[in-house]
Amino acid sequence: MIEIHGLSANYGEARVLNDVSLEVHQGEVVTLVGRNGAGKTTMLRSIMGLHRDLSGSISFDGKPIEKWSPNARARAGIGWVPDDRGIYASLTVAENLTLPPVVHKDAWSMEQIHATFPRMRERRSSMGTQLSGGEQQMLAIARVLRMGSRLLLLDEPSEGLAPVIVQRIGEIIREIKAQGVAVLLVEQNVKFASTVADRHYLLSQGRVVEQLSNDDFKAREVELLEHLGM
């Protein structure tokens, strides 16, 4: 679904990603795990086309996309859920949901969205940022599903949320995966990551230092927690 080879990214003088290669296949959940500043968010922004100062190749569905604009990438089926959730304050909940164009035939219908996210129906006329943090996270995920994205880039969806909501997000990720959607998940919550993911990339100072299956990841949980400084 997405293949990245030799990606390096800079912020001015500083190199934040160094020769990173990774891939995510259809129906697979893959995490990027690493400390703050390891380059995880830059990775997602680079895939989305929002970070331009980079070299290397990115191909999506076999097509090289590194020269494409962010909106062309979104229309090709890449859905971004930023770490601040990216909900528009000047748009209602319903408007936030219907803002992006529907880009794929497998896009979720409004009925599906409302069945999975009942709060989106109840609060549809509220302004986007009047929702609680957890509801905003749900809205951000629902938005890219309604759009029909085939690859979701989720930036720390569990951050700052109550355990019961994190659990719900985990269920939703598994449901998305079952439908053949690929997920690239940035996560610092190792426990949560191990409940949803198939594979993990360990990122440190802009490099992939290890690639782990979920079984290895679980077996080395204590060591990884130490590495992440958590």
Partner: peptide, 21 residues
């Protein structure tokens, strides 16, 4: 109007949602 409001509030995010700002 919805697109203009979104592009006004946060243009980069609108681009990432498939809108040609």
């Amino acid at each position: 109007g919805m697109i203009v409001r979104a592009a006004t509030e946060e243009p980069e995010r609108a681009r990432a949602l498939g809108i040609n700002v």
